[in-house]
């Protein structure tokens, strides 16, 4: 009896250590949903849940890629600019008469290509990723302005709007977010490649001695991130019936915040994509709930900041308790 208790305690604390941030986020989401729905029961209406989940899923999908990168000890600040460029490519192809599958595939391929190049510069030239991606952000942003001038892309063909579709009663963006989160969580915790990512970020020396090609590993992590940026772009570009060929403002900060608040350690080596997806949902839910509660719009961002800070501090408090 006693040992069983101890065992379950041990299991419990192990669970807390490994998935603590995910639990904090999940609990915050549930508390938020319960409290806000008491104030305004429409908050939990099906449409609003769709807005929160499906309307922000593209951020979550991009944050999956970002989390993979951050776990290997890298970062990408050009993600917003790249999504702007890829969405323009995606929409332009669709209206120029190329088949829809091609318009959907192009952002994924270009995303992989651009980020592989970044990965190669980072890994083989030894320039920190923040520097390369800061430069890349500047290049992509300037390039997009010179090429498009910010035109609206309209009249995409029927069937292009993937993000507006339902599948078994659930919006496609939410399904995509759930699917990719579970898939990457499984891959990262159960495959050799997945575990090598943690090793590259957590302890590169040990990773090297255990036979992992660090440079190749970093390039592949960037390529996979590029794939997720492409996937995110498809959701982003097909959500509305029009595409604006500009760089969405501050998107890189939103994506990075979702990843790091989701528990991905910025020093590399720890964290899961479940955390980043939950953090995406939490931020979207906070933004929506503040409108539902009727907080003065002028103070909205301040309260959002306080809530983000609380999440961070709660996680730190939890870690201490677990450690001590």
């Amino acid at each position: 009896m006693n040992t069983q208790n101890e065992n379950s305690n041990k299991f419990f604390s192990r669970f807390l250590i490994n998935y603590g941030q995910e639990l904090v986020l999940l609990a915050s989401i549930i508390i938020l949903f319960v409290v806000v729905s008491q104030v305004n029961h429409r908050f939990l209406g099906g449409n609003n849940l769709n807005t929160i989940f499906a309307g922000n899923a593209y951020i979550g999908v991009a944050a999956i890629g970002m989390s993979i990168l951050i776990i290997t000890g890298n970062i990408d600040v050009s993600v917003g600019a790249l999504i702007g460029v890829l969405a323009t490519i995606c929409g332009t192809l669709a209206v120029s008469g190329y088949p829809i599958w091609f318009a959907w595939t192009a952002p994924i391929l270009v995303g992989i290509a651009v980020n592989s190049l970044v990965g190669i510069i980072v890994a083989y030239a030894g320039i920190p990723s923040i520097v390369v991606t800061l430069g890349m952000m500047s290049i992509l942003r300037g390039g997009l302005i010179s090429v498009t001038g910010g035109d609206w892309i309209t009249d995409m063909p029927e069937g292009f709007f993937l993000a507006q579709q339902d599948f078994m009663g659930i919006r496609v963006p939410l399904l995509a977010l759930i699917f990719f989160t579970i898939l990457m969580f499984y891959i990262m915790s159960n495959t050799t490649w997945g575990r090598s990512l943690y090793a590259i970020g957590g302890n590169p020396e040990a990773a090297r001695t255990s036979g992992i090609d660090l440079k190749k590993g970093v390039v592949i992590a960037f390529a996979v991130h590029g794939m997720f940026v492409g996937l995110s772009t498809i959701l982003f570009a097909t959500q509305l019936n029009i595409i604006q060929s500009t760089v969405p403002p501050n998107l890189e900060l939103t994506v990075i915040t979702a990843s790091v608040i989701g528990g991905v350690s910025i020093m590399g080596g720890t964290g899961t994509v479940i955390g980043s997806s939950l953090a995406t949902i939490l931020f979207a839910a906070i933004g929506s709930s503040l409108i539902f509660i009727g907080v003065s719009a002028y103070w909205l961002r301040a309260i959002m900041g306080i809530l983000i800070l609380c999440t961070v501090l709660a996680d730190m408090a939890r870690r201490r308790r677990v450690v001590s």
Binding site: T257, V260, I261, S265, W299, R301, G305, I306, I308
Partner: peptide, 27 residues
């Protein structure tokens, strides 16, 4: 204080206060 006392990594701490301080300015 957040970084030293609460051991929050600087990137995370200042990402949070980035939102907070801008929000206070707006409010």
């Amino acid at each position: 204080i957040i970084i030293t006392r609460f051991k929050v990594p600087p990137l995370i701490a200042t990402l949070a206060t980035l939102a907070l301080y801008r929000g206070l300015a707006e409010g």
